[in-house]
């Protein structure tokens, strides 16, 4: 059967980051593969808050070996969606 890629489909890294988010913020009732990669992570989207932002930053630093920094020029975009966070990780990861 031909697999048809939907716009919502996650890349390998996005799936990995989705799992990391679910684990970091304890989203027990949200399966990682149901996170819309384009939806906002915070507030009206996935509904994460400032505490969750810290949890995700810690998990990213442990898993990918670099710090999310507040003075990053694109920092408002880092947390915009799963897709943008994943892209930022892809560009900066050291492990």
């Amino acid at each position: 059967m031909i697999r048809i890629a939907e716009g919502r489909a996650l890349t390998e890294l996005e799936s990995e980051v989705a799992s990391l988010i679910v684990e970091a913020v304890n989203l027990e009732d949200v399966p990682a593969d149901t996170i819309d990669p384009e939806a906002p992570l915070f507030r009206e989207g996935l509904g994460l808050d400032s505490i969750d932002a810290l949890e995700i930053a810690l998990a990213v630093s442990t898993t990918y070996g670099f710090e999310l920094r507040s003075d990053d020029a694109n920092n408002h975009k880092i947390f915009a969606s799963l897709r943008s966070l994943s892209a930022h990780i892809a560009a900066h990861r050291v492990k």
Binding site: D49, A53, N75
Partner: peptide, 12 residues
């Protein structure tokens, strides 16, 4: 303190 990125600033 307005958005999630400000939390990173707090940590720094």
């Amino acid at each position: 303190i307005a958005g999630p990125a400000d939390m990173l600033r707090l940590r720094e």
